[in-house]
Design a protein around this nucleic acid. Structure first.
Length: 327
DNA sequence: CATGGTCAAGTGGCA
DNA sequence: TGCCACTTGACCATG
């Protein structure tokens, strides 16, 4: 019996990240290194300290299991994994890390734990992943980055599926050239591995000049069947004549029957802080409005700066029981 | 050991 | 032109 709404949060657990030293110290999946720390010489000299990156990756992988267990203990069954599990992963093959065997064993353990406890793990490569860019070098690097994200899910033992979505934005329109941009984007998509294609989904942008839910549906879903992540907050900046309900339900039609629709929810930081100087798109620390699911069964990733604390507080406000089930 | 300046990547909006 | 915002703090030099 699944609940109608499953809430999740993104990448960082404040409680674990800020755990005091006397209780064991920081728990994070985002250890990285400055470029200057692990690269000697020029960018392409290949004189790199992969041992350092591997050490940090192994610590990240160990802490991922800790994260999943913490989430499960708090009945949080949806979690976005950050992109820095393997820091600088687009600069090397994952199995080039000296500690790869230990890392992959731990990630498989993480994947098994997630499957056993019904935890949906997703990820969201950054705004630098621009598959429709006119710059072919940008597209080339994007493809590498997306493949690395997909490989992490392979290592976790996840069958390729939108259940473990890799979520990105189109992220550009180049003076309103929607036709050309979508054609370039889809051409790039065709170059991805099958596993990556089976995981990649698109999210509506937060600017009127960019890609609304309706546009993603027309230009991308109709062409290649790609699912659409509906972001409530972004929608308010580019509704494109669709009501929130209509856009949410249009996005709902793009998900396969056996995969629950996933959405993103955030609120205005400018409103929360009562400060009009803050950019309208910026995210609040906590969320206070009740999320309207319009009767759908949804997975909702809460994008709030206070992370899991915002999720738990939301449950408090809206009378969820200790198991996270709406009363 | 706490702090604060700084850090890889693309794109677009704004002062 | 340079900052901010997005997926995300964490690194690391300095005192």
């Amino acid at each position: 019996m699944t609940e109608k709404v499953r809430l999740g949060y993104a990448c960082v657990n404040m409680t674990l990240t800020n755990r005091p030293k006397k209780l064991g110290g920081r728990v994070t999946t985002s250890r990285t290194a400055r470029k200057a720390t692990w690269q000697n010489g020029s960018d392409d000299s290949k004189d790199w300290d992969l041992h350092l990156l591997g050490e940090r990756t192994l610590l990240n992988a160990n802490d991922l299991l800790h994260y999943l267990q913490w989430n499960n203990d708090h009945n949080i069954k949806l979690f976005r994994l950050g992109s820095e599990l393997f820091p600088w992963h687009d600069h090397y093959e994952l199995n080039e890390l000296p500690q790869f065997d230990d890392i992959s064993a731990k990630l498989l353990e993480c994947g098994d734990y997630a499957k056993e406890h019904g935890i949906r793990v997703t990820t969201h490569p950054g705004p630098f992943n621009v598959l429709g860019s006119p710059n072919t070098e940008v597209v080339r690097r994007t493809i590498i980055s997306l493949e690395r994200h997909s490989e992490v899910f392979d290592l976790m033992g996840f069958e390729p599926s939108f259940e473990n979505k890799i979520n990105i934005h189109v992220g550009g329109s180049y003076g309103g050239d929607f036709d050309g941009t979508s054609k370039r984007w889809i051409a790039g998509w065709h170059k991805l591995s099958d596993n990556c294609k089976k995981r990649l989904v698109l999210e509506n942008d937060d600017k009127p000049s960019m890609w609304s839910t309706q546009m993603l549906y027309d230009y991308f879903h109709k062409e290649i069947g790609i699912p659409i992540t509906f972001d409530y907050h972004h929608h308010s900046f580019h509704p494109d004549e669709l009501s929130e309900e209509a856009a949410l339900k249009l996005a709902a039609t793009t998900w396969p029957d056996n995969v629950r629709q996933c959405t993103h929810y955030s609120e205005s930081r400018a409103r929360e802080k009562q400060d009009p100087k803050i950019r309208a798109q910026a995210h609040s620390d906590y969320i206070v409005d009740e999320i309207n699911t319009y009767g759908l069964e949804l997975d909702i990733v809460i994008e709030a700066k206070a992370k899991e604390l915002a999720l738990l507080e939301y449950r408090n406000i809206y009378a969820y029981n200790k198991k996270g089930v709406l009363l």
